[in-house]
Design a protein around this nucleic acid. Structure first.
Lengths: 398, 398
DNA sequence: AGGGAGCCTGAATCCTCAA
DNA sequence: GTTGAGGATTCAGGCTCCC
């Protein structure tokens, strides 16, 4: 147990047969670039070369590492290989050769949102982790996740019976109350994992390039090992895998060819911390503030919705005279005057050509409202227009 | 254009070189099983054999189909190959050989939620679509989606520069004010697509095995082709690709070895239907075609779009006094009077509570138009309201 | 031609300042 | 002091442009 320095091809030879329960490999990708990054306070800079003379060269190297990793795995052990888009298919072929295609278990998709670029084509927003077992009899702990937001709570909790006509209905006791069914554990984890990409500003970042989010490693370790088992990471880098293993009570062996990396990993292991991402804690919905109706109105205006602003709900997609146009939808609990104040206050610094306020309620006193603002256009939502017309028609008809 | 019957290897020979803009292939998977499924009313059962003597056999067949597909593609054309988990890596190697690894564009992950099973291991919840171009100069239309809820307004609006130390900072003019950047359309679509799996109860389902959601096909067609371009599907099955192509105004060529499939596809093409569940499903991912103003207006009205009616574009989701409310959006090439006539004519037999006409153009003579129809409400679209206000502001300002 | 410098991205954080 | 809205900041990106 510990962090070893050297080429993993060589160092792996010093480990005994069938001695580890899980091998996680995050090898250098076949990108032909040098990756470097500084720590957040610029005290150190870490880098590594990702250059190979050819793809065959790279694959020969990886084949040797995979065979060595297989040897040290216990019979119930598993391997998780982290691949990037350029060589994933070649690496899976290697895995088929070394572990056998019958031991392929899953292609895990790590999906994330990331800063964008001006790339022609689709934005790359996932990486692949291949999951192979050494034998058919491998260790696997099922993880349960939350139900989909569209799953009805009643469906999860309440027991069901079939009534006389064979239709499934909720079970009720003598007094007519619904009966809560047996404990549900949730939905088994799927092979698509939405885990936020380690953000450039994240505190979790230690300055080593290609650092992975700790949640990704925790999940892999939790799936494939129990407490006390041993985790191997032949390309441990800054040691995220080892930190996750230590925090989960597993033994660990890390190897890296860079002495900087080994020292950094040892440093992190002395004080293992698990920082919680705000996004993970709150979930994406925590940031979403708009109702369905508001979104529909923004779409109809051809406006881009924005969150994280109390006064502005969106901007028109097209600028007017080179200036943006801010939009606010009147909220259910605010009068038109307050909506106007909030919109104008929020737009002050945004150099807007003008602003649009969409009115969504009618039953107000508008006698004091100033409709003649030069830079504010008030539009009735379609619903308001329909209601007003219906009202008028009913009155004139009676 | 049409649906051809036969082995695609042979039928493709009858197509000319460089004649199609997009090839979408959803070949039989290498699963060694027979797939079959009945229609919802059990009127027919479709099945196909998915058996090959060996993997090499299967790959030899696919290599030939890929080469034939490449030949018929225009120089700016693209191919999308739908793979399953068992052979995806082999198929990507074939694509590298036939199209060249430098023409690899994306590995698209189609992710979906699915009913869970008790299987040991992770729940399979994705399929892979490989996207290759024929040359480096290929056609690609970027689709834009919403910003992440964590992105703030400043980030979206303000221009940035690098200062002397290479740090990115907001750009400011001489007076120290921030500078607003150019128009923003949102975030480019990523390579991970969350599209609901075709619900077994969906109206869209026609009972053919492995049927794909139409939204998936619409997206592929929208990014790789323009209106009037030609889409090829050598394994067209029940014809979802062709239906999507037709609905989006593209030409199409479908091929299938099963006569049942060809007949079913031809039947669907006579009455192309797009199920409502799929329409609602794209709410989070944004609209397929930003220019699809009509659909945006219908959604803002909370109306259900209807196809195949020359006078009515949709109905309000909620009835008024137990009667439906028909909606028409004024078309670009018709004046308001004609739009009104068509709407009223089409609604005559529908027992509507009233009808709504959404006005989308302003530069007309309205002096003869009768605005006081008891059963017709004319609403200005948001765009018209904005244009009118801008016009007025400019006139009063000058 | 080919390779490096410079530019534009936006996600998700950190950080500041006002209430 | 505490909170929280919103301004600021970096990057396992990817173009274009310029030698």
């Amino acid at each position: 147990m510990g962090v070893l320095h050297g080429d993993c091809k060589e160092v792996l030879k010093s480990l005994g047969d069938a001695s580890v329960d899980l091998a996680y490999l995050d090898p250098p990708f076949f990108t032909q670039k040098t990756h470097s990054l500084s720590t957040r306070n610029n005290t150190a800079e870490y880098s590594f070369e990702d250059r190979w003379t050819s793809l065959d060269d790279y694959l020969a190297f990886m084949a040797e590492v995979l065979r060595a990793s297989r040897r040290v795995l216990k019979e119930t052990g598993c391997i998780f290989l982290h691949c990037d888009r350029s060589a994933a298919h070649h690496l899976r072929l290697l895995l088929d050769q070394v572990f056998g295609s019958e031991n392929f278990q899953s292609e895990i998709i790590w999906a994330y949102r990331r800063w964008s670029s001006a790339k022609k084509g689709l934005l790359n927003a996932h990486q692949t982790v291949y999951f192979y077992s050494k034998t058919g009899d491998y260790k696997f702990n099922t993880i349960y996740t939350d139900y989909s937001p569209t799953t009805n709570v009643d469906q999860i909790l309440q027991a069901r019976v079939r009534n006389e006509s064979g239709k499934a209905v909720y079970r009720r006791d003598e007094t007519g109350n619904v009966v809560i069914g047996k404990e549900k554990r949730g939905v088994p984890l799927s092979d698509v994992w939405n885990i936020p990409f380690l953000n450039p500003k994240a505190r979790e970042r230690v300055g080593y390039p290609t650092q992975k989010p700790i949640l990704l490693l925790e999940r892999i370790i939790a799936i494939a090992t129990d407490v006390g088992d041993c985790v191997l990471d032949p390309f441990c880098g800054s040691g995220t895998t080892l930190v996750a293993a230590k925090l989960l009570g597993r033994d660990y062996i890390g190897i890296d060819i860079s002495l900087d990396a080994v020292r950094l990993a040892e440093e992190r292991l002395r004080q293992p911390v698990r920082s919680e991402s705000q996004l993970l804690a709150d979930g994406e919905e925590g940031f979403l503030e708009k109702s369905d109706a508001e979104r529909r109105i923004l779409r109809a205006l051809d406006a881009v919705p924005v969150e994280r602003n109390r006064g502005i709900d969106g901007f028109l997609r097209s600028y007017v005279d080179g200036h943006p146009v801010a939009v606010r939808i009147q909220k259910a609990d605010e009068d038109i005057e307050m909506a106007k104040r909030k919109l104008i206050a929020a737009s002050k610094t945004k150099q807007c050509a003008f602003t649009i306020l969409v009115r969504t309620t009618r039953n107000e006193d508008y006698s004091l409202f100033d409709w003649t603002d030069e830079d504010l256009l008030v539009i009735d939502s379609y619903d308001v227009a329909i209601e007003a017309w219906l009202d008028e028609r009913n009155h004139s008809g009676s």
